[in-house]
Computed example of a mutant assay.
Amino acid sequence: MKVHDFYFELPEELIAQEPLKERDASRLLVLHREDGKIEHRIFRDIVEYLDEGDCLVLNNSRVIPARFFGVKEDTGAKMEFVLLKRIDKNRWETLVKPGKKAKIGARFLFGDGELKCTILENTEAGGRIIEFEYDGVFEEILDKLGQMPLPPYIKRQLKDKERYQTVYSKVEGSAAAPTAGLHFTKELLDRIEKKGVKIVYVTLHVGLGTFRPVKVEDIKNHKMHSEFYIIDDKTAEIINETKKKNKRVFAVGTTSCRTLETAADDNGIIHGKSGWTDIFIYPGYKFKAVDCLITNFHLPESTLIMLVSALAGREKIMEAYNIAVKERYRFFSFGDAMLII
């Protein structure tokens, strides 16, 4: 299957630059997999599609303010660092711009020098392994000096940092938000729970690799980035019980979906576990755990549009996306939502 099979024309003005005032007021395109039927709703109507006994799976990862601006210690040259992955207490894998100034052994200062780092080694992907030096609590310094690493297609500065967090975000570690969950409010989750739907949480720390384009022509040759996930035994038990009763598992976002499919065995049984996943889901994949998916509208030719095509069928997804463009839906992180049922 070729990468161009997942291309569609997207006018730039449909890329949402900021979130709506009300989280659950986004539009919702409902795609019925069986017959391709499409409905146009508002996100808070999602309650109507969930039944008693179903299970809603949310990713509770929280975005860290992972973008830093500093200077080279010896020259004062300005530098940008983005934290990608924590290796241990003080060592991180990062992206650095401009990379040519970030040679092994180079030192950099942030703020008034309250945070320093040294370049330890280069990575295969072109990043750097760095080691931080500081006095005090790293997370407090991070919150003070760091900025939210918004996606490259969002050009406006976000006024309220919490709008790039889900209302249930809890476990810090993501470099990008699990954006399908941005539409939920606490009140909406209460309504869903009162309907008898079980709500559970998994953790997958989203990396910036989620924005990495597929550069190979044949998608089977694409190397997926890896991300850390956690699913506990209690959550696994609830999901397995849902499946046993022939009720449905709704994954909120491609991150929750990838976590569940990673943690499921060949019989569809979810196991509590944690680790790194580089699962790449594209058409032809047989889903083991996920029945329905709540997601946003994704970039053309991205691994994310390939994942949703695996669940609903490429032709149905491309048709739905073309309709979404025609109907002026808002796309990407702060855009509208889609329910595949």
Rank of each mutant, 00 (worst) to 15 (best):
D135H: 09
G136D: 07
G136R: 13
V137D: 14
E139R: 15
E140S: 10
E140M: 10
I141W: 01
L142R: 14
L142P: 10
L142H: 11
L142G: 10
D143Q: 15
D143N: 14
D143P: 04
K144M: 03
K144H: 04
Q147V: 00
Q147G: 08
M148G: 04
P149A: 07
P149M: 02
P149I: 01
P151C: 00
P151N: 02
P152W: 03
K155H: 15
Q157I: 09
L158M: 08
K159R: 10
K159I: 13
D160F: 02
D160S: 08
K161N: 15
K161M: 15
E162C: 13
E162N: 15
Y164I: 03
T166F: 04
V167R: 09
V167S: 10
Y168W: 11
S169W: 14
S169N: 10
S169K: 05
V171E: 12
V171T: 15
V171K: 13
E172F: 08
E172H: 07
G173I: 02
G173Y: 01
A176L: 09
A176N: 09
A177P: 11
A177Q: 08
T179L: 03
T179R: 06
T179M: 00
A180W: 11
A180L: 09
G181S: 11
L182G: 06
L182T: 03
H183Y: 07
H183I: 05
F184L: 08
T185I: 11
T185E: 10
E187A: 13
L188S: 12
L188Q: 13
L188P: 14
D190G: 14
R191I: 12
E193I: 11
K195S: 03
G196R: 11
V197C: 02
I199T: 11
I199R: 14
V200E: 11
V202R: 02
L204C: 06
L204V: 03
H205E: 02
H205M: 00
G207N: 02
L208M: 04
L208K: 03
L208A: 06
G209T: 01
G209P: 05
T210C: 02
T210A: 00
T210W: 00
T210V: 01
P213R: 11
V214K: 15
K215H: 05
K215Q: 07
K215G: 11
V216I: 01
E217M: 09
E217H: 08
